[in-house]
Simulated assay, not measured.
Amino acid sequence: MLHSTIHRSPSPRRLLITAGAFAIATALVAGCTSNEPASSDDEGEQQAAGSSNDEMGEEVTIAWSGPEADHGWLAAINSSALDEAEKYDDINLRAAEGTNDASLQIQQVETFINEGVDAIVLLPTDGAALTDIAMEAMDAGIPVVNVDREFSSPFAARTTILGDNYGMGVSAGTYACQLIEEHDIDDPVIAEIAGIDALPLTQDRSDGFAEALSNCGEEVDNRVAAEFTVESGEAEASNLLQAAPEIDIIWNHDDDQGVGVKAAFDNAGRDEFFFIGGAGSCNAMRWIEDGEMEATVLYPPTQAADGIRLARLIAQGKGMSDLVQVAVPRRIVLDAPVVTADNVDQHMERCFES
């Protein structure tokens, strides 16, 4: 099922300066190239940066298909895509109903292909299951922007934009090491509350955390795995607290399940540890402001918004002028910064409600 199309008649564009540029490895890019055609003297050469890509361009139809909004972060992913498209008068958006059914999502993409849209932005419910239909779109000349969950073939997407799960673990572990040093903690007890262990993203987060801790000679002493839900977070955090009478640092992978984790802490009257979260929910940021949480590590829900922007650039034949080679890169990995009391005000605007 497709939602109603978002469409506006062309009108003069106002300049939009949108925070949150793309991080490629460690480089930040915020695309802008001239929208004017090259002069005859410059034909065949790359255009130099000169004006904003946010200026009105050729109208393009961009299709979006994402997951069911059954989790705070996933709801934010969907809304970020829709909100970003509304900023551009030259985007005609075709938005499909969010779903966790791979078969339904395949049908949605088939519809987009039959409609002949100019680009498809897709967060697949299952990357492997959606690979073939994404390749069909690419073979039909429709560029696909793959968001968050990767396809199993590099030929299924023109561009892939990802959060950094391994980087989240590295950021959390590096910050834990910093806390140990700053507070001169001897023989620290470090705990981890993971998400679903069977998922590669959970494995990547745990691997990054362990790797960063090893750099300061530490390791995880107590670990449990929840299911990215409030209920499982509370249950597993309660089990952890019973198993460990004293803890110095806890990293919880997901701020949505963190609502339950925090409830378990409060119910047990335990607050002797530094509490680090993951993803960047508004709850977490409010707890940081109130001194009830030490930090959270971002996993940006703006990936879909970035996907819409990239699809627009690709469909309009534009590039990214902050790169020497301005063509939109094939793979973009966003940063996973640590949010603390020192910088929470800078990130609060983009938090998501659990």
Rank of each mutant, 00 (worst) to 15 (best):
D221V: 10
D221M: 10
D221E: 12
D221A: 15
N222E: 14
N222I: 15
N222H: 15
N222T: 15
N222Y: 15
N222G: 11
R223T: 13
R223Y: 12
V224W: 00
V224T: 09
V224E: 06
V224G: 01
A225E: 13
A225D: 14
A225F: 14
A225W: 11
A226E: 02
E227M: 09
E227S: 13
E227V: 05
F228E: 02
F228K: 07
F228W: 13
T229Y: 08
T229H: 08
V230I: 15
V230R: 12
V230Q: 14
E231L: 04
E231A: 14
E231Y: 06
E231D: 11
S232N: 05
S232F: 00
S232K: 02
S232W: 04
G233F: 05
G233N: 02
G233E: 04
E234Q: 15
E234Y: 07
E234N: 09
E234D: 09
E234F: 02
E234V: 01
A235L: 12
E236S: 07
A237Q: 03
A237Y: 01
A237D: 00
A237C: 08
S238K: 07
N239T: 12
N239H: 10
N239D: 14
N239Y: 08
N239L: 10
L240N: 09
L240P: 04
L241W: 01
L241R: 08
L241T: 00
Q242H: 08
Q242A: 15
Q242W: 09
A243F: 06
A243G: 15
A243T: 12
A243H: 12
A244F: 07
A244T: 15
A244K: 04
P245D: 01
P245W: 02
P245M: 06
E246Q: 14
E246C: 11
E246V: 11
I247C: 00
I247D: 02
I247S: 06
I247Y: 02
I247M: 05
I247A: 02
D248G: 08
I249K: 02
I249M: 10
I249G: 03
I249R: 06
I250W: 05
I250N: 05
I250S: 01
W251S: 03
N252C: 12
N252A: 05
N252E: 11
H253L: 11
H253Y: 13
H253I: 11
H253W: 10
D254S: 10
D255I: 07
D255Y: 00
D256V: 13
Q257K: 03
Q257P: 08
Q257N: 10
Q257H: 00
G258L: 03
G258P: 00
G258M: 05
V259T: 10
V259W: 02
V259P: 03
V259G: 01
V259I: 14
G260S: 00
G260L: 07
G260D: 00
G260W: 04
V261M: 08
V261S: 02
V261I: 10
V261L: 09
K262C: 06
K262A: 03
K262N: 10
K262M: 12
A263P: 01
A264H: 07
F265G: 01
F265N: 00
F265A: 04
F265I: 04
D266I: 14
D266S: 09
N267F: 09
N267V: 09
N267G: 13
A268H: 07
G269P: 11
G269N: 11
G269H: 10
R270L: 07
D271G: 15
D271E: 15
E272G: 13
